[in-house]
């Protein structure tokens, strides 16, 4: 706690005391700002604007029709299902992993952290491929699944699995440094006061990490709804059944229905914007919370 307040204090001082010796001449400032803005415009704003322009090119009616098409609705539904299953799974995992890693010391911890990170660096295509190798008809369990009338690949379970894989590390990675920074004093205090493990988790730890948790969930959700490569390998592209929204974008794009493709894409882009807004809100709340605690500490 104390280190945070010190740095924040000095940052405040720095702002006041920033003299000419430690800042740049105005013209350099503006050139740097201009370059940064040009870079972001080129890579972020223009492509984003293109999505909405292309989507509305054939008018608002075409746009709406593209979104209420049965195939589109079923893709939206499947995307929501996949995200709704992947999110809680990775949430529970994230809290468990962060608890083990942040609150305890054990051998092989850094290897474990690297392994948790692995899905982030593995190509989505490889992620899809490995599930085909296991659950595909020619794979380890293919025959067995067929005999028992169960489908994984080319059905919802496969899509969910691929989604879980690509969003695997996000919540854990968000929580581990946060919980490490918070230490375990509060939990130990609760233990001394006679709280059970679940009570500590529920009443002490979770309230402390709620903003980080939310942040991780937002990232997980965004990535889950947008995954393309891994899901593409295991989907089978059956219309109205195993197409997610990003896959539908590709299909429409390949059917001369550019406006419709961009319409679905714009929905995903909108989702991305909502994600960014939520994320900013969470960051703001977290910062406010930190300030309040700090204030309380200073007053006491």
């Amino acid at each position: 706690m104390s280190t945070i307040s010190v740095t924040q204090h000095s940052r405040y001082q720095a702002k006041v005391a920033r003299s000419r010796a430690t800042s740049e001449p105005a013209w350099i400032r503006w050139v740097l700002i201009a370059i940064a803005l040009a870079f972001l415009t080129l890579f972020l704003f223009i492509p984003l604007a293109a999505v909405f322009t292309e989507a509305l090119r054939k008018g608002f009616d075409t746009y709406i029709n593209a979104l209420v098409d049965p195939d589109a609705l079923s893709a939206i539904q499947l995307t929501l299902i996949a995200a709704a299953i992947a999110l809680p799974l990775n949430l529970v995992f994230g809290v468990a992993a962060a608890w083990a890693i942040a609150k305890f010391d054990f051998k092989g911890k850094s290897i474990l952290i690297t392994l948790i990170d692995l899905p982030f660096a593995v190509s989505p295509v490889v992620a899809g491929l490995i599930y085909v190798l296991i659950f595909g008809l020619q794979g380890w369990f293919g025959e067995w699944l067929l005999d028992h009338d169960m489908k994984v690949i080319f059905a919802i379970p496969g899509i969910v699995l691929a989604t879980v894989f690509v969003t695997f590390p996000f919540i854990a990675r968000e929580l581990i440094p946060l919980m490490q920074a918070q230490g375990k004093d509060e939990e130990e205090a609760a233990l001394v006061l006679g709280a059970s493990g679940w009570q500590i988790l529920w009443r002490v730890t979770l309230p402390n990490i709620k903003w980080g948790l939310l942040y991780g969930m937002i990232l997980t959700n965004a990535r889950a709804m947008g995954e393309f490569g891994a899901v593409s390998v295991v989907s089978g592209h059956i219309r109205g059944m195993t197409n997610t929204m990003p896959l539908l974008v590709e299909i429409l794009y390949n059917e001369y229905q550019y406006a419709a493709a961009f319409a679905v894409a714009s929905l995903l882009a909108l989702l991305a914007l909502v994600t960014l807004a939520l994320k900013t809100f969470v960051e703001w709340q977290a910062a406010k919370n930190a300030e309040e605690t700090e204030l309380a500490v200073m007053q006491s």
Binding site: F135, L137, Q138, G139, G142, L146, F154, G236, H237
Partner: peptide
């Protein structure tokens, strides 16, 4: 390839 891998 999909059918070979079990696309029904």
């Amino acid at each position: 390839r999909g059918v070979i891998d079990g696309l029904p």
